[in-house]
């Protein structure tokens, strides 16, 4: 079986031109694979480059060298060398990214913020809204808030809206960047459940989780990124 994510010898260095052009090595020789129905958790101390790796896998950070192989619609596409619109296609139908913060869209109702990824992929609005509602209910967002834009919500509520938006679609790859960071125990449990469901559906996941307990609950494998940390 071919891996869903196949990262080979990826390197990333920041060149800070505003600071006299100093080079800031981030990671080098990053190599790991993720299969379907598997959740890989990246571990390592702060600053080791976990988030950078996640962003490289999403195509948000560019690689200096190496390969980010993504299984997209039955073929493997290398995000490190893909055209912008190929990356956009991959994001639309293959990779989802759940960040810590909701990039609030002004004036759009919460229910629509959550339903949007489904609508973009062609699902009728009412069906999409129904699924969005189910998820919001599970994540304990009261129904009276659904029609309001999330920009005015508390941090925890915004994060749960963000999780709902991230988990709603049927994408085969999900990247989770601290999805439980500011959640209470009940909502953390919901996220663990959601991850388990995604695994059963065959989704490949890469996560960054600081909470040891959660990590134990969701990780199938742990990849220690310390070995990729580039020597300065």
């Amino acid at each position: 079986m071919t891996a869903m994510i196949d990262v080979t010898d990826a390197n990333k260095t920041f060149t800070m031109h505003l600071q006299g052009g100093i080079e800031l090595p981030v990671v080098s020789g990053v190599t790991f694979q993720v299969n379907a129905s598997e959740c890989v958790v990246l571990s390592g101390p702060s600053g080791a480059g976990k988030s950078s790796i996640l962003k490289m896998v999403f195509g948000n950070y560019r690689c200096d060298s190496g390969r980010i192989g993504i299984r997209h619609r039955g073929a493997v596409i290398d995000l490190a060398s893909a055209e912008p619109r190929q990356i956009l296609n991959v994001r639309r139908s293959t990779i989802g990214y759940v960040s810590q913060f909701l990039r609030a869209v002004p004036r759009v109702a919460t229910i629509d913020v959550v339903a949007e990824p489904l609508i973009v992929n062609g699902m009728p609005r009412t069906d999409a809204q129904q699924r969005a509602g189910n998820l919001l209910r599970r994540l304990n967002i009261p129904e009276r808030l659904w029609q309001l834009p999330p920009a005015t919500f508390s941090g925890g509520e915004q994060q749960r809206v963000n999780i709902a938006r991230g988990f709603i679609s049927d994408l085969p790859i999900l990247l989770l960047d601290e999805p439980t960071a500011s959640l209470d125990a009940a909502n953390r449990a919901v996220v663990v459940e959601l991850v388990a469901e995604k695994k059963r559906q065959g989704v490949a996941m890469v996560a960054i989780v600081h909470d040891d307990e959660i990590r134990h609950l969701i990780a199938d494998r742990i990849v220690d990124v310390t070995s990729f940390a580039a020597a300065a």
Partner: peptide, 21 residues
């Protein structure tokens, strides 16, 4: 040139870094 979030989150050229910062 590139994907908007790439260029804005990971700018490479000195001028782009200046713009973003």
């Amino acid at each position: 040139a590139g994907l908007t979030d790439q260029v804005l989150d990971d700018p490479r050229e000195p001028y782009t870094q200046l713009l973003v910062s």
